[in-house]
Structure formats: C-alpha cells, structure tokens
Write a protein that binds this DNA or RNA. Structure first.
Lengths: 230, 230
DNA sequence: CGAATTTTGACACATTTTTGACATTGGGCC
DNA sequence: GGCCCAATGTCAAAAATGTGTCAAAATTCG
C-alpha cells in the first residue's frame, strides 16, 4: 500500500511519513502541490494525504485535479486551517476526510485505515444482507436474529447472483447459466422448484415473498427498499 | 435517502434531525442504542449517526452489531468524547467518520454527504425520469415517492421508446415495430389497450394523462415541459 | 444402504395479452 | 353551429402465457 503525503513543512512531512511507514506503508513525499500531482500520476498511490496551504498549487487544487480523473481514490486533508467552512469546502471537493491540527498520530492512522478499508474491494464470499437476513456464503449459512438456516451450495449461488444484481431483475436464463451448467435449458420447473424451496427456508411468509420477488416473464429480483437507490 | 440518528439528548436529537431534514433527507430517530438497532433492522436507513454514550446499548455496541451483518453501511459517530483514543476505537470498529463536539451543522452535513457519496458508487445506469416518476428498466420498476410500481417487459419497452424520442411524437407504427413483432398490423385495440393499462399504472390522474399524451392521427408523446417554439 | 438434494411431470392458478363491442372525442366540412 | 367520420378511450371476457405447488422419481454423496 502506497500513501502519498503532500506537505510543505519538512518537519511535519517527516514526522507524518515516519509514522505512516512504521505501520508498514510505503510513503511518497511531495513538498508542494505540483509535485503531488506529478507523484500521483507516476506513483499510483492508494491514498493521498494533502495539506491545504502549499506553494504553487494548493491542496484543494490537487484534490480537484485528481478527482477529475479518479473519483474513488481516498483523499484526506490534513490542515491547520480550522474554519469549518474549509472543512466543508474540502469535503465537497470530493475528499474523504478532513483532519484538523492538532491531530495525534493514532487518529491520523485510524482515519487512514478507515479510508483504505472503505476503498478495499469487497471479496466474493463476504457476507451480505438480504432484508433482515445475513447470508454467509462460505459457511453455507443464512442467519436471522442469530437463528441459523442451512443452505445448499446451489441455494447460496442463487442468493449471490441475486445480490450481485441487487436492484435489478435477474432473468431465468441468467440463473440457469450461472447456477447450473451453461448449455442447460430444460422446459421444466427446476428453477421454480429451487426458488420455492429457498423461499420456504428464508422468507418470513413464503406465500408473500419479501426477499425474492418474481418478475413475470423475466425472472426474479431482490425485494425490499434498496439502499442507495435514487 | 434515510438517515438514522441515535442520540439520547432530546434537544440535540431534535436539532440534528431538523438540520438533516432541511437538506431533504428522511430522518429516523432513536433515543438509545436498543432502539437504534431495531430501527436499523426495520427502517433500512442509508446512513447511521450514532452518539457514543447512550442508555442500554452504547454507540460502539450499535456499530459492532450493525457491522456484524453489514460491512458497507456508512456509520458516523457524533460525540462529545474528546479523547483521540475514542476516535481511534470508533473508527477501528468500522465507523466511517467521527465528528467531535462542538461541531457545526455545515460540517456535519458535509461529512454526511461525503459518506453517502462514497457509498453510492451505484451507477444510476440507465434509469430515467418521466415527470415525477423514476423508471428503472433493468429492474422492471417505476418509482414515485419511494412507492414501487411493477412493470411488464412490454410496458418497459414502451416507456423506453417514448423516452428515447423524448420531445417528439412516436407513431403507432413505431410502437408496433419496436415493442411488438415488425410485421404486425392488426386493426385492433391492442396498442390502445396497453397505453390504457400503462396510464392506469403510472399516471396520477389516468383520465387526464400528464405523462403519456396522445397525438391524434400519429401516436403518443411524453408530456411534461416541452421545448417551446416547435 | 439411507439421507439429502435435485429433477420431473401434472395440475391449478394468476397475470398478461388480445380481441370485439361500444362509447367518446376531435377535426373537417357544409 | 351541427353533422359526419375516423381515431382513440374504455370495458369485459376470452386466449395465451408464465409460475406456484405438490408428490414422486431420480440422482448424488457419505
């Protein structure tokens, strides 16, 4: 993991860098905004720590330029500027966090860890939520209020497919392609049957499915209020 | 977008809620940790704001429980506790941010916006607006004020056709060509019938269609604000 | 072998699509 | 304006289609 630090005061820069390196990260050092942008382009860091006031190009401007081509790279401001308006400006420029001086090493590290954690790609096999149900693919389990429901590999595979396509309908063909062999096209009730069993297992009221909704002529879709949907 | 606030001081809770609501969010209010967990399960909020010190179950514990089944929901701590160790504990529990008192409204809002922005890499994709209606073709859904309307594939196809030709009339032949088989020429009421059903589903007042307007002798066209001077 | 899982076929049921009959609307024409 | 005609709106019912459900058979796996 590479972290870029842009800070014009050599002492502060060094203190920060030492601290971050001691946690096992690689540090790229920039002493002004221009250098920061160059290093960002050449060094491919995983996270930026930017001071606001720097020669040539200030931290805001660095943030703006980076965000123009990378909307997900974690960017943290570290600054003595203490007006909340600056915080608001910084965050609304697309920064992920704004740490005011005086800060402690441990807080800076905690915020860096938090930012990196968020940007880490989710692994397949991680647990996820389906309504009030927690699905743990690797354990072949679903849990509701600490009650466990055993699942078969195929059932897990179906739930994962639905989860991956959360918010949209998943066609019956997609189910057969993904959860069965590709060239499998029975004119049969196999898929319906599996949906039926799944619903009996995981729905509170299998007769009125709240989790697995059917989309006639297409397939199925996850129900419930979608988070992050606008 | 729903935001859950857990805070045991009624005055603080109310001030926060008012502020957040004024930015257009829906607020779920919890006055202790237990309530917060219940509301989280039932209300499906998009973000949590947690006070640390609360009766029954404290903010840390709420965070722990939520993170046990949802690793991506944005969680912000708002607290008077001012030791950086608390900040570190909070963030390392998986929180996304930690805002200390005294905070300003604008900073809280900026940090909420930042957290929501990160959690919504969700590409709105191909969903589009029809008046006050959001159409999500891939989900076969339309939404108005968070109420879902189920659509059939044909209805989606018709709405998409109208949307593609937004601002101009779409001929009946075009509908039949695109949404039905090409060489389809019944002297029948099929198309009218489908328009009728669609209007019943999506129009506020189906008798006076505001979305799907008929263009006599031609076909139909999307309503709403038209460019003037055609 | 026995248990769990998967598949199949038959049937009922619900929804969508189409059709035909009839009412209503709007525009051109006298 | 009033009339006529074609285009569209509306309804109810039939036809077509897709799913839910069950019981039983087939398969897999320890």
């Amino acid at each position: 993991m590479k972290i870029l630090i842009a800070e014009d005061d050599p002492l502060t820069l060094d203190a920060l860098a030492t601290c971050i390196e001691s946690e096992g990260f690689t540090v790229l050092r920039a002493s002004d905004g221009r250098e920061a942008v160059e290093l960002w382009r050449s060094g491919k860091p995983d996270l930026l720590c930017l001071d606001i006031m720097m020669p040539h190009v200030d931290g805001y401007e660095v943030c703006r330029r980076v965000r123009a081509s990378d909307r997900t790279l974690p960017i943290l401001f570290l600054s003595a500027k203490n007006q909340e308006i600056d915080v608001v400006v910084g965050l609304d420029l697309g920064a992920d966090d704004f740490i005011r001086k005086p800060y402690t090493r441990s807080e800076v590290m905690a915020r860096i860890r938090a930012a990196l954690r968020r940007s880490a790609p989710r692994e397949a096999g991680d647990s996820f939520l389906l309504g009030d149900l927690t699905v743990r693919p690797r354990a072949l389990l679903a849990e509701r209020e600490s009650k466990s429901i055993e699942l078969t590999p195929r059932e897990v595979s179906m739930l994962c497919l639905l989860h991956v396509h959360k918010g949209e309908a998943v066609s019956r063909d997609a189910f057969l392609d993904t959860c069965w062999g590709l060239d499998y096209f029975p004119d049969s009730r196999t898929l319906d049957q599996h949906i039926l069993l799944l619903r009996k297992k995981i729905e509170n009221d299998p007769a009125n499915p709240a989790i697995i909704q059917t989309v006639r002529a297409v397939g199925y879709r996850l129900g419930g209020p979608m988070r992050s949907g606008c």
